[in-house]
Amino acid sequence: MKKRYLLIALVLLSFVSLFLGVKNIHPLDLFRLSEEQLQVMLVSRIPRLVSILVAGAALSISGLIMQQLSRNKFVSPTTAGTDDAARLGILVALMLFTSASLIEKMIVAFVFALAGTFVFMKILDRVKYKDAIFIPLVGLMFGNVIGSLTTFFAYKNNLIQNITAWLQGDFSGILSGRYEMIYISIPLVIVAYLFANKFTIAGMGEEFAINLGLKHKQIVNIGLVIVALVSVVVMLTVGLIPFLGLVVPNLVTIYAGDNLKKSLPLTAMLGALFVLFCDILGRILIYPYEVPIGLTVGVIGSGLFLYLLIRRKAHDA
């Protein structure tokens, strides 16, 4: 998997993404856009492309970090309760502070997501049976439990369809003025890159890390904060994109190994590419309507995940 090819594919698909939509804009028109076309570009198409690229890259990286820190290939925001905790947080924000601004909602959701992820890591410590397959099972169950709490409150407040609709991953609602929060992910990704070496070492175990003079707890906490924040930001702007953080890093590490410094940029690019591809697919499948990204990634992602699982089984069986 060469970086070069990924980059070329990314640029090509980005162009496709920009010129795809109900409002017809021909690539040749690029330098003589009408007022209206320019408007469409600036208000809808470019924000959409940017948020796709950022969301794809950031979520994939947060998956990679989680896998490294938990030392389990099948842990990701989807399989560790992070997503569900964030969802609960958003619901709580909706219920308690009805007039809250987006930022306030984000903070509440972030606190929940972080707490959920911490609890999961605590559970990981406690569970003695650390089978690679058992851990994500526990995580998904944990997520289901949090989900049932969400349902409990949502039902009481008649918010079920509301929250379902709002949190379904969907790029079609991305318009300038309503997506900028996603930029918060960019510095987080940079921090992740700066800490890449330390995450790699932390991933080799607490004793190992301490032996090398690393503050293990601190590194883990930084990693989890990044993961929780990215998950919340993406969820609030785009919605839930399941399995992304699981599938992309796994595909990358198969080829590039577990050294984060090396695999992190690849993961970011492949993640962006994957989401971009799924988004374009969703836009052309039932044109002029759209299949939301949550569904396309959900279907393709779970398929890939099952493939990875079976492949892994075939390797050690």
């Binding site: 099948f74 989807t78 397959i133 994500p136 099972l137 998904l140 169950m141 369809q161 379902t164 609709a165 379904q168 399941p242 399995f243 299949v291 939301p292 949550g294 569904l295 959900g298 279907v299 779970s302 995940f305 099952l306 699982l309």
Partner: peptide, 18 residues
């Protein structure tokens, strides 16, 4: 785990329709 993942997939499909 396979069952659970498929369950999540069914969940996404339901959400889409809901």
């Amino acid at each position: 785990l396979v069952g659970l993942v498929l369950g999540t997939l069914f969940g996404s499909l339901s959400t889409f329709m809901q």
